[in-house]
């Protein structure tokens, strides 16, 4: 994107924060998949776990055994940024800055986060920040150094409501035009009229759609192994994340049809209900 490039910064470098408001809707999963997806295409990516006190991104990426220093060691001046960054050996160019597990959100300030992001910008094309749930200081910290924001929601009343609140707070913090990812969509339920559709959600939130990720057991299975589903060529969620990665890079990729292939879809077509 057109971030004004200061001296030493990569012209294309971008800091993206992944937010949601409501907990457990898929921020960490999204962050990991974006990181792996971008890195597997040769990009230099730093993933920052801003969920201080509830460190997760390390286990989702399968890097939990390699942590020496964490983000608070960097901001507190106990080590250099380079020392705290864990290199993912599977992907050239993918690095993780882990959260502290034993401290709380006040261990880092928004100013420190800004500085940290500025430093990461000089070396990485993409800096992706995994935001904690909530709207308190952890959220403030996570968004402080970001150029743009991604909002993750699920198709449920509570999650969409919280997403709406987050969008308001992001805009108040001058992070304009956040993009939406709808996660865990169950197309069967949408067809039956028992789950809000993408159109419904977009209509209510009035923001741009970055992508739709279906509910998929492969997300859990990959996460169990410390892998990202984006690498799984056969899964639909993997395809969904690959599409999102391309859109993050600015390419126009059509939304995939989550209906096609479903048994009900075919049956409905057969009897002419579609």
């Amino acid at each position: 994107m057109e971030t004004a490039s200061k001296e030493g910064e990569l012209a294309l470098s971008e800091v993206i924060v992944v937010t949601s408001g409501k907990g457990g809707v898929g921020k960490t999963t999204t962050t990991a998949n974006l990181g792996v997806g971008l890195a597997s295409q040769g990009h230099k990516v730093a993933l920052v776990d801003a969920d201080i006190g509830l460190r997760n991104l390390d286990v989702v990426l399968g890097l939990e055994n390699r942590i020496v220093y964490d983000i608070t060691d960097v901001t507190g001046g106990h080590c250099r940024l380079r020392q705290a960054l864990i290199k993912d050996k599977r992907f050239e160019g993918l690095f993780l800055l882990p959260a502290a597990q034993t401290k709380d959100k006040t261990a880092v300030s928004p100013e420190e986060m800004k500085e940290l992001c500025g430093e990461l910008r000089q070396e990485f094309e993409f800096v992706i920040i995994d935001c904690p749930a909530g709207i308190e200081q952890g959220f403030r910290n996570a968004i402080a150094g970001a150029d743009r924001a991604v909002v993750v929601t699920t198709p449920e009343v509570s999650a969409v409501r919280d997403a709406d609140r987050i969008i308001g707070l992001l805009e108040a913090a001058e992070l304009r035009d956040p993009k939406l990812i709808v996660n865990r969509l169950r197309s069967r339920m949408v067809r039956q009229g028992d789950m809000m559709s993408i159109e419904d959600i977009i209509d209510i939130l009035a923001i741009d759609l970055l992508g739709v990720v279906p509910e998929d057991d492969m997300v859990v299975i990959s996460t169990n192994r410390g892998e990202a589903v984006v690498q799984d060529d056969r899964s639909r969620s993997g395809q969904a994340y690959r599409n999102i990665v391309q859109r993050i890079k600015g390419e126009a990729v059509p939304m995939m049809n989550l209906d096609e292939g479903g048994l009900m879809y075919r049956l409905r077509r057969m009897i002419g209900l579609k």
Binding site: E156, V157, V190, R191, Q192, G193, D194, M195, M196, S197, D200, I204, M264, L267, R268, I271, L273
Partner: peptide
Amino acid sequence: FGREANGSKNIAK
């Protein structure tokens, strides 16, 4: 085979 009008999604919306 699903008829949206009957579904709970309208209540949710």
